[in-house]
Simulated scan of single mutants.
Amino acid sequence: MDTTHPSPTAAGSGASATQAFLARQEGGAGEVSRERVATVVQAVLDGVHEAIRTHEVTYREFTAAKQWLIEVGESGEWPLLLDVFVEHEVEEVAARKQHGTKGSILGPYYLPGAPKLPSVTTLPMREDEPGTRFVFAGQVRDTTGRPVPGAELDIWHADHAGYYSGFAPHIPEGNLRGVVVADGQGRFEISTVQPAPYQIPTDGPTGKLIEAAGWHPWRPAHLHLIVRAPGCRPITTQLYFAGGDWLDSDVAQATKPELVLDPQPVSDGCVRAEYDFVLEPA
């Protein structure tokens, strides 16, 4: 079988991420007061000005930065750039007032509208989907410990080579994506394959920045989830794998020790991990 596939480009991934983001912003982001805009924007500008003064930024460096920002916009990479380098701090601020399961970043590769699946299910995948078979099971409860019947787990992840459906030309639409509906006791069991670590697209301006700074572009293997139920605050999170590459040096700085799975072998070629989610009242 031919295993050579065209790689997703930064421009292609950026355009898809931008379109997906804009599609989710129905009606805009809501009103923000002038005072709030002035306060936050002025703080950002103050930080930029201080960096220029402290590091004596030259006109040549300033011009290079302007050119790079133009390239980010033209390539559609703003979602990628902001999700990788900024979102983790926004999530940390939000977490200060939240209870229940730890959250993490949404990232640029979420797509709404995945099919609903029963509590015991297999994610949509190719007939010959490569990778280690993986069973992910657990229960959704509230902060009092009671099961949350019918809770939904919107789950998506990369394949064994680190590619996401909707963002790579050779992956079928909807591959390894689904909304799993927990049973009457909030329980679920999802069969899929273990995702691989992946590097964010590096052939665009975000990649140029990473290379110029001498950073690495890798994210550790992870599952993405949005767990939700009526009357509860939805949780957006990511679950990682013990011992995985880049777990301690995630380019997006989104890992947390509470979000690490430790899959164990259950049969030839299959591993299993369990994780329970706790939702707080909305």
Rank of each mutant, 00 (worst) to 15 (best):
T3S: 08
P6D: 14
P8Y: 09
P8A: 14
A11T: 03
G12H: 10
S13N: 01
Q19R: 03
A23P: 01
E26W: 00
G27M: 11
G28M: 12
R34K: 12
R34W: 05
E35V: 12
A38D: 05
T39M: 05
V41M: 04
V44S: 11
L45H: 01
D46C: 06
G47L: 06
E50I: 00
A51T: 08
I52T: 07
I52H: 09
R53S: 03
T54F: 05
T54E: 14
H55E: 12
V57Y: 00
F62M: 02
I70F: 02
I70W: 07
E74N: 10
G76H: 12
P79D: 11
L81Y: 03
D83T: 14
V86W: 02
H88V: 02
E89W: 11
E89H: 15
A94N: 03
A94G: 03
R96C: 09
H99Q: 10
T101N: 07
K102M: 06
K102L: 12
K102D: 14
G103V: 05
G103I: 03
Y109P: 02
L111F: 03
S119M: 06
P124D: 10
R126K: 09
E127L: 07
D128R: 00
E129R: 12
T132M: 10
T132Y: 00
F134V: 03
Q139F: 00
R141A: 10
R141L: 02
T143W: 01
T144R: 08
T144L: 13
T144H: 10
P147Y: 01
G150P: 06
L153I: 14
D154Q: 07
A158Q: 01
D159G: 04
D159Y: 02
A161R: 14
G166C: 05
I171T: 13
P172K: 09
G174P: 07
L176G: 03
V179H: 07
V180I: 10
V180L: 01
V181G: 00
V181P: 03
G184L: 08
Q185Y: 03
F188A: 12
I190A: 08
Q194E: 11
Y198G: 04
I200H: 06
I200E: 09
I200C: 02
P201F: 06
P201G: 09
G207P: 07
H216D: 08
H222T: 01
L225I: 02
R228G: 02
R228T: 15
P230N: 08
R233H: 04
Y240D: 04
F241N: 02
A242E: 15
G243V: 05
G244C: 10
D245N: 07
D245H: 03
D245Q: 13
D245V: 02
L247G: 04
L247P: 10
A252M: 06
A252V: 11
T255R: 07
L259R: 15
V266I: 15
V266Q: 01
D268R: 13
D276C: 15
L279C: 12
L279A: 13
E280V: 10
A282Y: 12
A282W: 09
